[in-house]
Design a protein around this nucleic acid. Structure first.
Lengths: 220, 220
DNA sequence: AAGAATATTTAGATTTACCTAAAAAAAAAT
DNA sequence: ATTTTTTTTTAGGTAAATCTAAATATTCTT
């Protein structure tokens, strides 16, 4: 079975929100994620429910069925493989690839995906540090914590960022923060949750809660 | 400006028919090429005319404007670059790539196209031997003649095939005919325009007019 | 627990790209 | 030069995905 680009985008959005906030996923949360109206979301949820891709209860929100999860996972696999391709093979930087991958993920050819996977040497993580599901949909898990959960003095290596907006990633570039960068937490200000950090044993920055909460590190 | 997948497909179809049969291009020819109804074609032609992509005269057929040609050429460029990528980098064979490239050609990112071009080392011809327009839309021309225009005894090198249907290409594979294969014309039967040929100085075949007319060679 | 605020669904339209059937124009045949 | 055939257009409709406004359900507040 195969699905429209729009249906696929809804399934992926539901998957991502469920990952962040748990189930059930609300109509409004989906509308916000996809920059569309709540009314449109309701329409689509009813359609996806008929196709057995989601379990939907009026006014109560929605949850992916195993079929729905399968579709979402394959989309995420395609998105992250294409992002890896763009960065590794075509020389794009991590802040340029999201929108292009957003288009490429809807290309329908399982053979292409698997050939691409092999061509890239079966990468486990994409350029933003997010795990790439294998052809069976299995994610490689990695112990990661949000930057602000480090204690003062502790050092972490950046392994993922959860916000892929171009502006956010460009900002990180200016702070010299990339996947693999080491960051030492100097001090936390409870007042506004801002953090003083030291990047790569050299530059010190004061960063807002808004910036730090999307950076994930592995303690070293 | 950017166009829907459907609009793009119409522009490409008009371009290809004009190449084969000249202008103006008829409504029915487009309907046949796109497997759609004549009525749908008329609708779309009126829309494309409003956008200044075609010059359209009721009942008289249609012709691309320079804007329309530009869009069509860039699509062909993308299609052929992606086909080259699929064959050269991912190990597909020439009879598997058309449908996938048909999807990939609608990905909208000029930067991506040019990076892909560079990654492939600026190829001049695709796996079917067709010229790939450069970023300015210029095609490299090559003196090619249809196989049946060889005289008896003459030898040609296959440089292009004009039909990209999977079944046709698979048939050519079985005859050991690929880009670069040398073919000697032994004899032409005027009765049904079938040809007796010798492939790669070894195998002899009798091929129908239907097969031969899509094979283009360069005399040696 | 009632009223206010928020979230969600329904109703009714719009746009795009398609369709079939009927009408009209152009081309071919006698 | 009519008539017949073919091609093309118009008319009217459908399905997908969206929208705004109104109605209804749920949750929050006091």
């Amino acid at each position: 079975m195969s699905f429209s680009t729009s249906e696929e985008n809804y399934l992926k959005a539901i998957f991502k929100i469920a990952e962040r906030k748990g189930v059930p996923v609300s109509t409004n949360a989906i509308a916000k994620e996809l920059h569309t109206s709540a009314a449109s979301v309701t329409d689509m949820l009813q359609k996806l429910a008929e196709k057995q891709l989601v379990q939907y209860r009026k006014y109560r929100g929605v949850e992916l069925t195993s079929d729905g999860k399968e579709v979402a996972t394959q989309l995420i696999r395609k998105h992250r493989l294409w992002e890896s391709f763009l960065v590794e093979k075509l020389g794009f930087s991590w802040d340029e690839v999201h929108d292009i991958a957003e288009q490429l993920e809807h290309i329908d050819s399982p053979l292409l995906v698997n050939r691409l996977d092999a061509f890239l040497d079966f990468p486990k993580f994409d350029p933003h540090g997010d795990p790439i599901p294998d052809r069976n949909g299995k994610f490689t898990l990695r112990s990661q914590i949000p930057l602000h959960q480090l204690s003062s003095g502790e050092v972490g290596i950046v392994i993922a960022v959860q916000n892929h907006e171009k502006g956010y990633l460009t900002l990180l570039d200016e702070l010299d923060i990339q996947i693999g960068t080491s960051i030492r937490l100097i001090e936390t200000f409870d007042f506004d949750n801002s953090l003083k950090i030291e990047v790569s044993d050299s530059r010190e920055h004061l960063i807002s809660d808004h910036i730090s909460k999307n950076i994930y590190v592995r303690k070293v």
